[in-house]
Amino acid sequence: MSLLKAEGLGIQFGGLKAVDEFNFEMNQNQLYGLIGPNGAGKTTVFNLLTGVYKPTSGQIIFNGKSLLKMTPTQITQLGIARTFQNIRLFKKMSVIDNVKVGLHHSQNYSLLSSILHLPSYFKGEEAMHEMAMSLLRVFDLEKYADVKAGNLPYGKQRKLEIARALATSPKLLLLDEPAAGMNPIETEELMETIKIVREKFSIAILLIEHDMKLVMGICEKIAVLNFGTVLAFGTPDEIKNNPDVIAAYLGNEE
């Protein structure tokens, strides 16, 4: 059984079909890429998969369950986590608290036990702290634990967003242009981190990226989106040599 399956997925904004007849399938622990020209509908696909937008047609099956009637909260709890193209951290909260929000469901001490400062409260908070710190360590962010998230440099904010997403212990991680705004060295680092994350947490990753070197370098398979539909799907080599893909990219450059 596949982990994620989208069938004939589509959404319309007014007259614009942002995504149309989107078919896609992914299995556990795979690392796929989603590319396409600007405005192709990549971010919209993520918004559909995470319940931010409700599709006007089609079906999404995740882990055997239909996501159509679920809220974004429920979908996240089911195991899809994501980052955003335009970073959306909790800016005024500390770095570690951002991760702890993601870890919310990892502990279940009640409100009453925190008011009465019962042992379960301290135990839960301690465990959460440990988990958050070890997640921050994966991204070399542990020294910034108490810094306000909004005060982090751009590249580190992107990493923190991934850490917060991982905190929800997802089965599928959606990364929306994780390397945007990073310099080549940072991008290189990020590639390594993504590989490590996938192995360490044994999760599937789907990433949107404009940096072709990164996508071609780490993705097993790539889907190319154009005008909301899948134009091509295959290994990086197949995609590189696909005439349709080349035409779509070149045609879009004027």
């Binding site: 909260t73 996240t76 959306r88 909790f90 919310h104 469901h105 997403a165 929800t168």
Partner: peptide, 12 residues
Amino acid sequence: EDETASELSGIP
């Protein structure tokens, strides 16, 4: 801080 990001971090 950000209601959408909060929902997508699993917060009810």
